[in-house]
Amino acid sequence: MIQLDKVNKWYGDYHALVDVTETINKGEVVVVCGPSGSGKSTLIRTLNRLEPIQSGQITINGQDIHRRGLDLNEFRSHIGFVFQQFNLFPHLNVLENCILAPARLRGLKPAEAKARSLALLERVGLAHKATAFPSELSGGQQQRVAIARALAMEPPLMLFDEPTSALDPEMVGEVLLVMRDLARDGMTMICVTHEMGFAREVADRILFMDAGQVLERATPDDFFNRPQSPRAQKFLSDIRTPFAVEF
């Protein structure tokens, strides 16, 4: 479904993505992990063109996403993106946040949009907060609304950019549960995350990145028990500190 071919990106002189070549299939759940600055967020942001690339090709469903004549807004409306900072629209309530895009972009009538949004809010466990404003919600609740908002466009692909990194520890679980349920329903997902427990349990494949390169691609079992590259081995031993939650 997604094909990356020798994708390269520079920030000025800094080589952020180095010859990245990957294939991600429909229905796969891929977790991208690695140390800070390894290019994980950059990579996922290139997929909906929030970041430009300097060379290489990205193909989604057989179409080059950088081709001339591509309607960028239309393209983006088919990809759900969940941000680390939630980015809910503070001047709209929860329901309005979810309704906005389907109503404006898919021409859904108000009643339809409302019904669809409420169903999604029910799915993430927040239908009872439909008329609340983002400022009245906890971080975990806001992020779940953000997921519902992204799902409202019925995208075939969901991208998660460190969705739980800005959350207090006790709220991480509720968001990961929603993401797990989404995976079980067959959604194609790419998640950048530090949550190794989630990766182990939910991911079909793990991509380990460092310094802009994908150093390892393996099943969770292989990655956690038999890491091949020294960098991955170091990463895993570093995160297995005495205080880390055992996974």
Partner: peptide, 19 residues
């Protein structure tokens, strides 16, 4: 993030500005 998010949903530049 506000503008980024609006654009990620697929809203155009002026739509994002307006809403």
């Amino acid at each position: 993030g506000q503008l980024e998010c609006a654009r990620s949903l697929g809203l155009g530049y002026f739509e994002a500005m307006r809403f």
